[in-house]
Amino acid sequence: MSLAVVLIIAVALSFDFFNGFHDAANSIATVVSTRVLTPRQAVAWAAIFNFVAFLIFGTHVAKTIASDVVNSDLLTNAVIFSGLLGAIAWDVLTWYVGLPTSSSHALVGGLAGAAVAKSGWAALIGSGFQKIAVFIVMSPLIGLLLAFTIMTGIYWAFHKYRKVDKLNRGFRRGQLLSAAAFSLGHGGNDAQKTMGVIAVLLFVNGHLAKAADGTIPIPLWIVLSAHTAIGLGTLFGGWRIVHTMGSRITKLQPAGGMAAETAAAITLFFATYSGVPVSTTHTITGAIVGVGTTQRLSAVRWGVASRVVWAWVLTIPGAFLISYFAYLPFRALS
């Protein structure tokens, strides 16, 4: 394996690490803000389930990233490196301005931009992009509807129950499970995106061959290293961010937190099994909006929701443009 390949794998795993670093707050903020777990306990809880997700989900999302976004026969090390560079730069830029963008969409946009800079629009696979684009809109809406349904079900089931303290204790315990489920979904869907990038890199360099069905197989060491990177990212980063997240965006009661996390987890499980890369941030945001809607529409912080819509619109084109220009020096050299 050449030094270039090793370096690009390191960049891809760094991308995964920072994904865990930032997104961990989504899965642990509610557990911390409702004082079910301390921040340190919560990040350890989330990191464990981020890691063990490899035992549950296959590698469908990784295969989508490796085979269905960009024509893998046209890729080179420079294209993959520029794609990762664009995705990371977009993530850092939007984190700085506070736009809740999706690392997943940045990665897809980044790979596409660098591939188009090398080989033109023919490098893109339309059907793969169509699937991802549709779910950019659908995954937050599915999370919203499921969260509203679960929360309303909780109201219906317990509205005559008078022992509020006992009920809250039950929901606090339930939150441990729902946070674990969300972390499983997060680890399953997001770690696989990095696996896809590493697999396609190894294919380009002749270290992996395509399977009979035209997809690139994902070796176990790639699976384990991607899950380790996202788990470590969660462990090191989550507790720093959760203090802000827990009070500013997701100040939920235990029942609401459990409903939002369960709805988002169901959405992520479905997407991961179906091989669709979705944004975990957008999914949990949609679910929180769904819980807020059970009270009244004005209970929802629409400012946050509208920023997510801007993130939908801007992420893929933004990362695309950065990667496109990042590849141009390589094109001039070749």
Partner: peptide
């Protein structure tokens, strides 16, 4: 109608 005042958000 009008929704509930109690519930998910604090």
């Amino acid at each position: 109608g009008g929704g509930t005042d109690e519930g998910g958000r604090a």
